[in-house]
Amino acid sequence: MRAYGSGQLLKDVHMKKNKSGHGTISRRGFLQGLGAGAGAAGVLTPGTLAKLPPATQGAASAAVREIELRINGRRRRVRVEPRVTLLDAMRERLRVTGPKRVCDRGECGACTVFLDGRPVYACMVLAVDAAGHAIETVENFGTPKRLTRLQREFVEHDAQQCGFCTPGFVTAATALLRRRPRPSDAEIQSALSGNLCRCGTYPKLLAAVRVASRPARRSQSAASSPGKQHKQR
């Protein structure tokens, strides 16, 4: 009996466009796929796959190189293989963990960062391609004690539950408001449609962005503002 490969193989040869329109073929998986003989993917059986030599391995390890990433205004040097994504370089090597890894293939927006001022999915950009460009992450917008207006509205509206999608939504919404300070509801909905939230905070985060784009209300009383809280872990 033969079992033909399905999603398993597809993942490794999947080529996607960076949603920011950069159009780079920027997938670690893509490189791996090439190494594993992706051209023949359609006829490989999973069994064959398991036996394939890890062709990229030798070459890739040899290709480790040091690059400089400019993250939130700081120059950080990091050693990566060419197949390492910007997201993994930041999270697993530089401890910049605001951007989250959720789908790792440009579908959920949890890893959204600014690259030269434009929002991109950091899981769809190779670290080596990001070298020399200005990278800005959610950590750079506001601190828990000094939130941006948008972040404050997220908090006030309870636009986060588990919060795992939140850095991505905050970044995507920040991008929208930088581009269009007074977006329509439809524009907000569409600008955030590249992000997913499994806890279902959509109604509240749409409201938070809407309110954040309008003139400030009178300030909240200090007692009811979580900004005044004791420092939580």
Partner: peptide
């Protein structure tokens, strides 16, 4: 009342297992 860990979450500072 808004949750007290909101500011930590919206600023990307909540530390998850990941």
């Amino acid at each position: 009342l808004p949750r007290l860990d909101g500011p930590i979450k919206v600023s990307g500072r909540a530390d998850y297992t990941y």
